[in-house]
Every structure is written in C-alpha cells, then in structure tokens.
Design a protein around this nucleic acid. Structure first.
Length: 284
RNA sequence: GGGGAAGUCGCAUAGUGGCAAUUGCAACAGACUGUAAAUCUGUCCUCUUCGGAGUUCAGUGGUUCGAGUCCACUCUUCCCCA
C-alpha cells in the first residue's frame, strides 16, 4: 500500500522501536525495510525507552516532514495507546522525578494498592471513583501527576489536546480466530528457527528494563531466573550468561510464547473493537 | 494370576459426614492518557424476575436427618510382584 501511494511508513509499535529487539518483536525484514522507508523502527535503545508522549511529539514532527513531500502517510502498528496518542493526541503531563517514582513504587510493593489508593482518594477523589482500584500501576501514575503538578490528575487530562493538521482514516484488519491462532504458532516457530534463543540470551543482563518485559523475551527470562534460584551456587556467573536449554525447555518456552502472543492478540481485538465505529474494517 | 493406588465442573488440583464443591491453567467478556507486547477486572454446571430455583463429584444400590466424603458390587485407569 505504501508503495502504491508512493509514501513512507511510520511505525506505532511500542516494541519495534528498539534496536536490540529484532526477531522476538517480528521486526519487518531487511527487504521490507528496503522496499519502503520506515520510521520508528530500531531507532532507540532499550536503555533509553520511549514513552507515549515523546513518541507522539517525534512521530508528529516526522509526519509533518513527510507531508511536505507526500500526499499520504501510512502509520502502522499494534500498540493501541500509541496509535491513540498519535491520532487523537495525549495530555501534556509531567514526568515524575526518579525519587518520586521510586518512593511510590516501594510503597506499592510494601504496603499494597490500598495504601496508594487512599492517597489518591485525598488528592483526586474524582479519579479515585473511576479507576480500577486493584490496578496499582494506574493509581501510581495518577499520583505521580497529582504530586508533580499539585492538581488532580482527572482535571489535567480534561484539558483539550493538540489538533491534528491532517485527516486520518483508520483501518482495522481482522482475521478468523482459528486462522489467527495458527499463524501465531507458525510465526513463533519461525522465530525460533531464526535464532530467537540467541537474541534473548544476549539480552539476559538487561532483563530488568521495561522494554524487555515483552512477550518472546520474558518467557526465557522466567525460565533462566527460576534455574538461578534452584542452583544458587551458579547464580554469580549467570547474570550475563544464561545456560543452554534442553529440547523440552525450548518446547515449554515456545508454547508459553505462543499462548502469550495469543492473549496479546485478543487484547488488541478488545481495544480495536472499541474503535470499530470510527474505523474501516477489512477482513483478511 | 497376586498385591496396591485412584476415578471431582475443558485440563490439572483441594475436599475424608452439612458442599454447587478449593485453587491454578485454559476459555470468554472487559478496563485502559508516559510501564501499554505493560498493568488490571469480571464470568466460567444449567435456568433466573439476581431474591433464588434445579441438577452434579465413574455407575448402581445401601447406611444416614444429611454422602463427593462411609459400605457393597460393577466399570475404568495407573503402579508393583509374577
């Protein structure tokens, strides 16, 4: 389609941003990347992760540039929130200081969600009444904003967002569920053939980073980490040197990745279902 | 042939006289404003006017006010010895 429209592609995939992640995030192939210029693919390091807002700003200016020489631009991706931010904008919110984030994280970990929830009730009763009170991450984020700005999060996000200087047509791709599931299985098998295990092994030392909390990677890390705790005597030299897996373990990891990818696909379906009335739906 | 163990809602698992029955997974539905491939929630025997109602724990029969739990037999599975 990009070739037909003689244009370029902007990726909205929150994992394909990272140059260290390739096989496991099904990055477009060299040929595909060569066929059409792509933006936001392998452009960052996992050590310097994106957040939606930075992405939105950068993607917008990229799109502006592209519109100077192209009539159309194609944005593609599977990360619902990122697509949403790019097409409809996202509030301007402060980042927490590392100390604040850390403090809240500790509180969440040590005292549980209720403790953060009761803070939120004080600082932003309106949001308190609408959030999922079991979702610590969400409450933590709202608190960060309340504390940084001194205003309720729910008020700040009500402010109007930046208008888009272009028209958007949204297309949602659909596929029969059984077929989708079969294709996911094949895709994961192909990743293993392409050397997924080696790719993940090289990233074992970075497993604590947010972008590595990802399907296709975390399943390996979990397995290696559980082996670490089973054999603590080896843990010292395990950090950057994960052990070889048996055929049976490979099978286990592969099945876990297939299942988690399927779960993710279903969450995407749920997300895009909500946008269905503003989208054109194409069934494959 | 002899001895032992066991059959619970898709799978696994708890339950040893008060039970529509524990937990995990899967399945299904959903939430979502800087962690988003993340994080979190609900449903999950059947029907329901959401108060309940009706059927369940391999099968049949029995004991008991009451049985998934105890007894008898039947069927099935697994393990050990021959």
């Amino acid at each position: 389609m990009a070739q037909k429209l003689n244009t370029e592609i902007v990726s909205c995939d929150s994992r394909q941003f990272y140059k260290e992640l390739n096989i496991g995030v099904a990055r477009p192939s060299e040929e595909e990347l060569a066929a059409v210029p792509h933006h936001f693919i392998a452009c960052r390091s996992v050590n310097d992760p994106y957040n939606v807002f930075t992405y939105e700003q950068e993607a917008l200016s990229c799109i502006d540039r592209l519109f100077m020489t192209h009539e159309n631009v194609i944005a593609v991706g599977g990360s619902g929130l990122y697509i949403e931010a790019l097409s409809n904008g996202i509030s301007i919110l402060p980042d927490p200081t590392p100390e604040l984030r850390n403090e809240l994280q500790q509180k969440l970990k040590n005292e549980g969600v209720e403790s953060l929830a009761s803070m939120l009730k004080q600082l932003d009763p309106e949001y308190y009444n609408q959030v999922d009170l079991a979702n610590g991450v969400r409450i933590q984020r709202a608190l960060e904003v309340c504390i940084m700005t001194g205003e309720p999060y729910s008020q700040i996000i009500k402010q109007p967002k930046q208008q888009r200087p272009f028209e958007i047509e949204t297309i949602v791709l659909q596929r029969d569920r059984d077929d989708l599931r079969r294709r996911i299985d094949l895709r994961v098998d192909q990743m293993f053939k392409d050397g997924l295990e080696a790719e993940v092994r090289n990233l074992y030392g970075l497993r604590h980073l947010t972008p590595l909390n990802t399907v296709g990677y975390k399943e390996f890390f979990n397995l290696w980490a559980s082996e670490d705790t089973n054999e603590p005597c080896n843990s010292a030299n395990m950090d950057n040197q994960a052990r070889n897996l048996s055929a049976q373990q490979i099978e286990e990891v592969s099945n876990a990745i297939k299942l988690n990818t399927w779960h993710y696909a279903k969450k995407q379906i749920t997300w895009f279902k909500k946008k269905a009335n503003q989208s054109k739906i194409i069934t494959l």
